[in-house]
Design a protein around this nucleic acid. Structure first.
Length: 482
DNA sequence: CGGTGTAAACAGG
DNA sequence: CCTGTTTACACCG
């Protein structure tokens, strides 16, 4: 634990970077290394070499930092202590060693900053390490991590984060933000919590009982009321209560087999896919964005076709069928109210446009044919995994998309469409935006450069030149309530 | 009390 | 081991 250094000098801290705060901090644009003028004292600046910044000076901070994790050991663990310390520290600016944001916030940012708004756990870790100075040193391998534990914990706990099953190399699921997420408020933490006895609702998960039964674990009564909890967030949502969630209607998850859990509503919901693009709306801005997004995407509608075609260069047509489909139109349309466009198209399009993503590619490759190249793959674990797909039930509709191997995506054709998608700064939080951008870029670049990093998440899209954000990736995966 | 941070026990891969 | 889930605690506002 204690990573040695921790205490020592590391004390990093401070958060310079992103963080929204109202302060626009330098609006300068993404520097490779944020400098943080802010003034806050921080010191952060030290930086020197680029990266640098890490060190921060803040003695106090340091302490805090150290305290955080470290503290535990000495005295029992009690969780909170650390926080306290941290909080205590400093006059008030940052609550945690890394700044004011909570883990949940950080995670949110991380996710938002990704082109397609979804990240795997490791990518999240990575982001943290990369973007939050405090964690910069701690990223490495090692267990480094209490914080990782916390991240995981947060992901699982908060309803704002949803897990989307990812079929790829065995990678873990994608984590995205729940569109409804914070909005509607409630349910900050998805766990129902009060376990107070009375609520028999208690988790219905069949396996819930697990083994630790000290308490009454009563297996449940089964309450029939579906909808309430089993699937994490209401799969089809709780619709019951929820009125609408248009959003959800729009994309619902596919019951596809979640295997054991039963409860899928057996409805016929075809497997829906979530086209990220369409929904990528950041929680905050949503509507507007939505429109914008739509427009953007729309515009090049024609390109869709071309895209496909071009894509077809394909050599790989794997059978993995990605089903891009739109929900019964109704949903989406509704969502957009303006039926400027055809939902279907949109989704399709978007999906397509985002295509060429590495991940996707990988996915494609993986399944059937042994990866031609892969030779290295850091961890080496990616086992082939048939991935056969359980996929979408209705293959029919499912369109199988084939993408060309983009080995060179940079040059090749697809480029064109990639461009449009980036959303412009929408204001509201320019800061955020910037930050995102910043990270994004960083992220992208980094990934690109360092594929060796150890994470196998792979190469990112290389924006060959132009657009930073978005450029690729993606593909649709079905949401599974896992 | 609710939100949070942390630790940890556990289930699956 | 890594990823997820879930408890449980300690705190702070």
């Amino acid at each position: 634990m204690a990573e040695a250094g921790g205490a020592a000098a590391t004390a990093p801290d401070i958060d310079p970077d992103f963080e929204p705060q109202s302060r626009p901090r330098s609006c300068t644009w993404p520097l490779p290394r944020p400098e943080l003028p802010a003034g806050a004292a921080e010191a952060g600046g030290t930086g020197g070499t680029g990266a640098a910044a890490e060190e921060g000076a803040g003695g106090a901070a340091a302490a805090a930092a150290a305290a955080g994790p470290g503290r535990a050991e000495g005295a029992r663990a009690g969780g909170g202590g650390g926080a306290a310390a941290a909080a205590a520290r400093k006059g008030g600016s940052r609550r945690n060693a890394w700044g004011n944001l909570s883990y949940a916030d950080l995670i949110t940012q991380a996710i938002e900053s990704s082109p397609e708004k979804r990240l795997t756990l490791s990518q999240i870790y990575d982001w943290m390490v990369r973007c939050v100075p405090y964690f910069k040193d701690k990223g490495d391998s090692n267990s480094s991590a209490g914080w990782k534990n916390s991240i995981r914990h947060n992901l699982s706990l908060h309803s704002k984060f949803i897990k989307v099953h990812n079929e790829a190399t065995g990678k873990s699921s994608w984590w995205m933000l729940n569109p409804e997420g914070g909005k509607s408020g409630k349910a900050p933490r998805r766990r129902a919590a009060s376990m107070d006895n009375s609520s028999k609702l208690a988790k219905v998960r069949s396996k819930a009982s697990k083994k630790k039964p000290p308490l009454q674990s009563a297996p449940e009564a089964t309450a029939d009321s579906p909808g309430s909890q089993f699937p994490k967030w209401p799969g089809s949502p709780s619709s019951r209560s929820n009125e609408d969630s248009d959003v959800w209607n729009t994309f619902r998850l596919s019951p596809i087999l979640t295997e054991q859990d039963d409860l899928h509503d057996e409805e016929l919901l075809p497997s829906m896919v979530y086209s990220s693009a369409s929904s990528n709306v950041p929680p905050t801005v949503t509507e507007e964005l939505e429109l914008i997004d739509g427009l953007n995407l729309m515009s090049p509608s024609s390109s869709v076709l071309s895209t496909q075609q071009s894509t077809s260069s394909g050599q790989i047509q794997r059978d993995s069928s990605f089903s891009l489909r739109s929900p019964s139109a109704a949903g989406q349309t509704a969502t957009f109210g303006n039926s400027l466009f055809n939902p279907v198209e949109m989704s399709l399009q978007s999906s397509v446009s985002h295509f060429s993503g590495p991940q996707t590619l990988e996915a494609l490759l993986t399944p059937g044919s042994p990866p031609p190249r892969d030779s290295k793959m850091s961890s080496g674990n990616l086992r082939g995994k048939p991935a056969d797909l359980k996929a979408p039930v209705s293959a029919t509709a499912a369109q199988s998309v084939q993408l060309g191997s983009p080995p060179l995506l940079s040059s090749a054709g697809p480029a064109p469409l990639g461009l449009n998608q980036d959303r412009l700064p929408i204001d509201l939080d320019i800061d955020m935006y910037m930050e995102n951008l910043e990270c994004d870029m960083d992220y992208i670049i980094r990934s690109e450069l360092m594929d060796a990093d150890g994470l196998d998440f792979n190469f990112e899209p290389v924006p060959s030149t132009p657009s930073y954000p978005s450029s690729s990736q993606a593909s649709s995966h079905t949401w599974v309530p896992s």
